[in-house]
Computed example of a mutant assay.
Amino acid sequence: MIYLRNAQERGHANHGWLDSWHTFSFANYYDANFMGFSALRVINEDVIDGGQGFGKHPHKDMEILTYVLSGTVEHEDSMGNKEQIPAGEFQIMSAGTGVRHSEYNASQDVPLHLYQIWIIPDKEGIEPRYAQRRFDDVTGPQLILSPDAREGSLKVFQDMTLSRWALKQGEEGVLDVAPQRKIWIQVVKGDITVNGTAASTSDGFAIWDEATLAVTATSDAEILLFDLPAV
């Protein structure tokens, strides 16, 4: 089964300084049909005005991933980290037993565009931790998250992987899906088809009970591919 989550059908909140699109129920957006997908709880696409951001606030027992598409994030947390995350980098934080953090646009005049992704961990009470990394630009799949931090990926406390795929126009990637696994594909940019179903920038796919996926780029494209447990 391949279900297209059309970008324009997501929840939407415009707070003036923040323009946010919610793939799943979040804050004031609620849809009983979109409460998450497997271990994915939040996929928000945010555009934040210069000098604006999220002040110090708490989290607990959640893996929080940020992928910066343009601009720079200024991060500060209760673990003592104060970092900047420029475009192209990934940041992950285990909230675990509890952490407070703030995320601001480091620029006063250039908008910040990012994905904020929350992943439910497979265990509670993790000691809070923070990591960020820039990955080399490569064609094809590139491992970003894994439970054992293999191949230089960032560690995530969940039975899942995240790969970033860059595809040139006309290029096809094929993925064999293991039994009892679910796949979420988020289109970061460009146009693709998945087993013939077309999608464009900011669309998503929820996929289950498919043994093989053929991902074809109909323009230069980038996707995030989450390989997730069945429950």
Rank of each mutant, 00 (worst) to 15 (best):
residue 37 F to W: 14
residue 81 N to Y: 06
residue 119 I to P: 09
residue 82 K to E: 15
residue 107 S to I: 03
residue 95 A to N: 08
residue 106 A to L: 09
residue 47 V to E: 04
residue 84 Q to H: 11
residue 47 V to G: 00
residue 42 V to P: 00
residue 113 H to M: 05
residue 94 S to A: 11
residue 59 H to I: 11
residue 75 H to Y: 12
residue 46 D to N: 11
residue 74 E to I: 00
residue 105 N to G: 01
residue 73 V to W: 03
residue 100 R to T: 15
residue 71 G to I: 08
residue 92 I to Q: 00
residue 116 Q to E: 15
residue 102 S to N: 13
residue 31 D to L: 05
residue 71 G to V: 07
residue 61 D to E: 11
residue 75 H to N: 13
residue 64 I to G: 02
residue 61 D to W: 05
residue 95 A to Y: 00
residue 37 F to N: 10
residue 26 F to S: 01
residue 117 I to D: 05
residue 78 S to D: 14
residue 40 L to Y: 10
residue 60 K to H: 03
residue 85 I to R: 02
residue 73 V to L: 15
residue 57 H to F: 05
residue 42 V to R: 00
residue 98 G to W: 03
residue 116 Q to H: 10
residue 120 I to V: 15
residue 88 G to R: 09
residue 30 Y to I: 06
residue 98 G to R: 05
residue 96 G to P: 14
residue 70 S to K: 15
residue 114 L to A: 02
residue 119 I to F: 04
residue 117 I to A: 04
residue 103 E to Y: 07
residue 95 A to L: 07
residue 69 L to A: 02
residue 107 S to F: 02
residue 110 V to E: 08
residue 28 N to K: 11
residue 43 I to C: 00
residue 100 R to S: 11
residue 99 V to A: 12
residue 89 E to F: 02
residue 41 R to D: 10
residue 114 L to H: 06
residue 85 I to P: 02
residue 75 H to Q: 07
residue 25 S to A: 11
residue 119 I to G: 07
residue 75 H to I: 13
residue 124 E to C: 04
residue 107 S to W: 02
residue 118 W to S: 11
residue 108 Q to P: 01
residue 123 K to F: 06
residue 47 V to Q: 07
residue 43 I to F: 03
residue 85 I to H: 08
residue 55 G to V: 07
residue 111 P to I: 09
residue 25 S to E: 04
residue 29 Y to T: 06
residue 96 G to D: 09
residue 33 N to Q: 06
residue 68 V to M: 00
residue 67 Y to A: 06
residue 72 T to L: 01
residue 74 E to C: 08
